[in-house]
Simulated assay, not measured.
Amino acid sequence: MSKATNIVWHDAGVCPEERQEKIGSKPCILWYTGLSGSGKSTVANAVDRLLFDKGYTTYLLDGDNVRHGLNKDLGFSDVDRVENIRRISEVSNLFLDAGLIVSTAFISPFRADRLQAKALIGDERFIEVFVDAPLETCEKRDPKGLYQKARDGMIKNFTGIDSPYESPLAPSIHLSTNCDDIEQCASQVVDYLLNNQFIK
């Protein structure tokens, strides 16, 4: 529930449809979800580069980067994870109103939170991208050394170890970074955007 009072929504002088027409693409959010080490940020960056090089206006919100600023007051408890996703959803919505294609690379482990984000953003603009890799593979990669710290008890509430990850039941895009390389995964995402007329 909002604590703010005496506030009134201010309508912008430039509407979202005008921004969309000028930019030349249909705004949407690519919501990458998966275990730490699954390849979310790597795939998201590859897609962002492909889209940018094609002339589209994009922005990438990475989980670690956002926690350096906007969400630096949040930890990794279940309550903080929920608030983390809520804030990202709100920020993403602002970028969508600006007409951009937005990518978010967050573990976002709970289905309810992803559904809440989808409800806020809208079914037609929310593209859930499941970056799938087995826990064993993610642990072997362990690019930040976090799994080892979690196994050693140095990190609590770590997804996949002592905190659950709820896989998407029906993602818009299902990528397997255990089978396909980054270029193949990125191409699958761009093909989805083309086939669904988000880009031309």
Rank of each mutant, 00 (worst) to 15 (best):
S2I: 10
S2C: 04
K3A: 10
N6V: 04
V8I: 15
V8Y: 12
W9A: 11
A12L: 13
G13D: 15
V14L: 14
C15D: 15
E17Q: 15
R19M: 10
R19H: 14
E21A: 15
K22T: 14
G24I: 15
G24F: 09
S25Q: 15
C28K: 12
W31G: 03
G34Q: 10
S36I: 11
S38Y: 10
G39S: 03
K40L: 01
S41V: 01
S41K: 10
N45S: 14
V47C: 09
L51M: 09
F52H: 14
F52M: 13
K54L: 13
T58A: 08
L61Q: 04
L61V: 03
D62I: 08
G63L: 00
N71Y: 12
K72F: 02
K72R: 10
D73A: 09
F76S: 00
V82I: 11
V82R: 09
I85D: 00
R86Q: 00
I88P: 04
S89K: 00
S89E: 00
E90V: 10
V91N: 04
N93G: 08
L96W: 03
D97Q: 15
G99D: 03
G99W: 06
I101L: 06
S103Q: 05
S103T: 05
S108K: 07
P109Q: 04
R114N: 02
K118T: 06
A119W: 01
A119G: 07
G122A: 04
D123L: 14
R125N: 14
F126G: 06
F126L: 04
E128L: 11
E128I: 09
E128V: 12
V129D: 02
V131L: 02
D132P: 05
L135H: 11
T137D: 05
C138S: 04
K140Q: 08
G145F: 09
Y147M: 05
Q148R: 11
A150E: 04
R151M: 04
D152M: 07
G153F: 10
T159N: 04
G160T: 08
Y165F: 12
E166R: 06
L169M: 13
T177K: 08
N178Q: 12
N178T: 12
D180I: 06
D181M: 09
I182F: 02
I182M: 00
E183F: 10
C185F: 01
A186M: 02
Q188M: 11
Q188Y: 12
V190T: 11
L193N: 07
L194G: 04
N195F: 07
N195W: 07
N195M: 09
K200P: 12
K200S: 11
